[in-house]
Amino acid sequence: MKTETKDAAIRRLARIEGQVRGISKMVAEDRYCIDVIRQVQAVKAALVGLETVVLNDHINTCVDHALTSSSVEDRREKVEELVAVLGGRKK
């Protein structure tokens, strides 16, 4: 993972961690359910954003390297990984 991607991911994770702590506090304080759900949705959206950042980095580094290598096996492996992760299947 590139340094700038790693730094961005760590910043995003810190924000997500704070959001999750906030949701925990809301539940403990018996806050209105819809307000809690809205915060859960915000965390889910933040996780999708993090996933996109990490996936883009993977494509631009690991996948690009494999696709330009002479190893057919490396290329096949990276494509299979992407299909599995984007299709929601476990490798």
Score class of each variant (00 low, 15 high):
residue 82 L to K: 01
residue 17 E to S: 15
residue 10 I to H: 05
residue 44 K to P: 00
residue 41 Q to F: 04
residue 64 D to E: 15
residue 16 I to N: 02
residue 44 K to W: 02
residue 52 T to P: 00
residue 81 E to T: 09
residue 57 D to A: 07
residue 25 K to E: 14
residue 19 Q to C: 07
residue 87 G to P: 05
residue 30 D to G: 12
residue 22 G to V: 05
residue 54 V to G: 01
residue 6 K to R: 15
residue 80 E to K: 13
residue 47 L to R: 01
residue 38 R to A: 12
residue 43 V to L: 05
residue 83 V to L: 15
residue 23 I to V: 14
residue 56 N to E: 15
residue 8 A to F: 03
residue 67 L to C: 10
residue 70 S to L: 05
residue 88 G to H: 08
residue 37 I to C: 06
residue 72 V to D: 13
residue 46 A to E: 04
residue 16 I to W: 04
residue 12 R to S: 11
residue 87 G to S: 10
residue 21 R to A: 12
residue 39 Q to G: 01
residue 78 K to N: 05
residue 69 S to V: 11
residue 86 L to W: 04
residue 38 R to M: 09
residue 80 E to W: 04
residue 65 H to Q: 13
residue 57 D to R: 00
residue 85 V to C: 01
residue 7 D to I: 11
residue 77 E to I: 05
residue 2 K to M: 08
residue 89 R to L: 13
residue 44 K to L: 07
residue 37 I to E: 11
residue 73 E to F: 08
residue 20 V to I: 15
residue 47 L to I: 12
residue 5 T to A: 02
residue 69 S to W: 09
residue 40 V to C: 13
residue 47 L to C: 13
residue 28 A to G: 12
residue 64 D to V: 09
residue 10 I to Q: 12
residue 69 S to C: 10
residue 11 R to N: 11
residue 60 N to E: 15
residue 83 V to T: 09
residue 12 R to A: 13
residue 58 H to W: 01
residue 84 A to L: 04
residue 41 Q to L: 10
residue 74 D to S: 12
residue 82 L to A: 02
residue 82 L to Q: 01
residue 72 V to W: 06
residue 2 K to P: 08
residue 53 V to Y: 00
residue 60 N to Q: 14
residue 67 L to G: 09
residue 66 A to G: 04
residue 65 H to W: 04
residue 56 N to K: 13
residue 3 T to N: 10
residue 58 H to F: 03
residue 13 L to S: 14
residue 45 A to W: 05
residue 64 D to A: 15
residue 87 G to R: 12
residue 34 I to R: 09
residue 39 Q to W: 02
residue 27 V to N: 08
residue 66 A to V: 06
residue 63 V to S: 03
residue 39 Q to S: 06
residue 52 T to E: 10
residue 5 T to N: 11
residue 87 G to Q: 08
residue 76 R to I: 13
